[in-house]
Amino acid sequence: MQNSEILSLIKNKFPELLAEETPHGLVIPKTNLLDVARFLKTELGFENCHCVTAVDRKDRIEVVYHFYSFTYHFMLTLKIILSMNDLTVESVASLWRSADWLEREVYDLFGVRFLNHPDLRRIMNPDEWTDYPLRKDFKREDFIPRPVSPGLKG
């Protein structure tokens, strides 16, 4: 199984989709993510969402999904490109439970908001934080003034 085969299968299913193949995975528009993801899971057998992460390219943020198929022994790399003034994308946590925490991590470190996520909170850093530390424009000097934590509740 190859990226190009997956791409042609996706194009057969969604003829109007503007998907393209790059050397490092498929790139699809963010509006079609949920449809394509559902198609990948239910019909192509990508039952494992192995990794969700993001890459800051300074002018844009790429959200990178790694889906794995046990049947084909194939790891698919799917990318969504987000412009810096609209960092929102549909959540795939309703399809793969593993995406829940992985998306929370991307939200915490990059500030990408996942729409319809069951519980979008920061996962590593304190909830009161407003910075996104893995962005390229994050300054390390800003790290010093730590927010005061209200302490453990309960």
């Binding site: 470190l109 996962i123 590593m124 850093n125 304190p126 530390p133 893995l134 994050f138």
Partner: peptide, 11 residues
Amino acid sequence: HLGYLHRSIEK
């Protein structure tokens, strides 16, 4: 709740 050992190794 996670993050008590977060050192931002990826950064």
